[in-house]
Computed example of a mutant assay.
Amino acid sequence: MKIVQLITHMNEIGGAQVHVRDLSKQLAMDGHPVTIISGGDEIIADGLLIEEVTYMHSKFLIRKISFIKDFLAFLEIRKKLKLIKPDIVAIHSSKAGIIGRIACWSLRIPSVFTAHGWAFTEGVEKKKQRLYLSIEKWVGKLSMKVITVCDQDRNLALRHQVLPSEKIITVHNGVMDSKNTSLEKGNREVVKILMVARFEKPKQQLELLEALLHIKHLNWQMIFVGDGSLKRASAQFVQENYLGHKVTFLGSHSNVAGLLSDADLFVLTSAWEGLPLSILEAMLHSLPIIASNVGGVKEAVRDTENGFLIRNNLSELLSILIENELLRKNMGEKSREIYEASFTFEKMYTKTISTYRNLIVSGENG
């Protein structure tokens, strides 16, 4: 199969970008020629480049809605697809998802759109919800197949009548097993809490810091990994509340797997999500999870089994796991068990490539 992966940008590492990278790498290793077309800045972020894959840049494909640039992006992507002549185009992220599906429809090229969380999901501002819902309903008529990364997102699309059920398939996110030999973490006094996320609007790091302030007397060390526009506000909160000795900001980090291996607890306080890869990576490292009950999170974090879902009680949940080492250990082991059963990269890859093949065959027969 000759495959194009189309995504709005590859400028920074996020769930969709890591998904495209890992999927493309495995496809190339299995002998499928892969081209990644991305917009945004022309520079590809460190950690997202793959030697075996061809990269092409779309200068007009940007995140913000711009009717002129969006139309030019459509023409540009259409031209690139005519040149490449792929057997299938796999499309990721909202903006690329709209433009890419229209371009593929116009060229009669089989395509599949992976929704890494809908832009009309609960938690997103209402005006944006309404806009993207109306767009998705329209472009849904041109869609051959849509992959949702969790059942919650599939049900959300069906409830809003975005697509008929036969056009939607759930393929749960999966991550490659990068687990190192477990470090001996028992009997150390300070509990290491880790959050890996961009400092942007949906992630709500300040909510976590406010919860930790209420339990500052307990023995914990908070480690934030990630950069973004809201990082300064979090750093200011830490300074103003004299938490500098307990909170560390690492910025972007090249060895997240090592940090996960050394952590005791993983936290994610998002306002909305699809099915976050960061949680799955924490689970493969046998960590207990505290996370917001949004999107498909509850499909991975089973409340009271391998962690807790937040219900306006974040400080209380943090206290429970900080003070109970045995509970952390038992929940962490359950996380690893759930990961192996449902969220491995191999399971995701097998279902995804099967979807590609079925679409190509139906396209040829159609």
Rank of each mutant, 00 (worst) to 15 (best):
W272Q: 00
F60S: 15
A115N: 04
E136P: 09
K85L: 10
V18Q: 05
Y339N: 08
E51R: 12
R154L: 00
N293T: 05
E316R: 09
L49E: 15
D46C: 14
A45I: 11
Y339F: 09
S182W: 02
L314H: 05
S229E: 14
G47N: 13
V361D: 00
N219Y: 06
V18D: 02
S93H: 15
V4L: 03
V256Q: 05
Q204K: 08
Q152N: 13
P202N: 00
G117F: 06
E122N: 14
H253C: 09
F266V: 10
H9Q: 15
G296D: 10
S270R: 03
L212F: 07
L260N: 04
Y356W: 08
K203H: 00
L280H: 01
L309H: 07
H160Y: 15
K127M: 04
A341N: 15
G307K: 09
S270V: 04
W138E: 02
I91K: 05
N241R: 03
I43G: 07
Q205F: 01
A263G: 07
E281A: 05
G31P: 09
E125D: 10
E52C: 13
Q236H: 08
S24V: 06
L209Y: 10
W220C: 03
F308A: 11
S165V: 01
D46W: 11
Q204W: 01
M283L: 08
R336L: 12
D177I: 11
P164S: 06
D46L: 09
K231F: 01
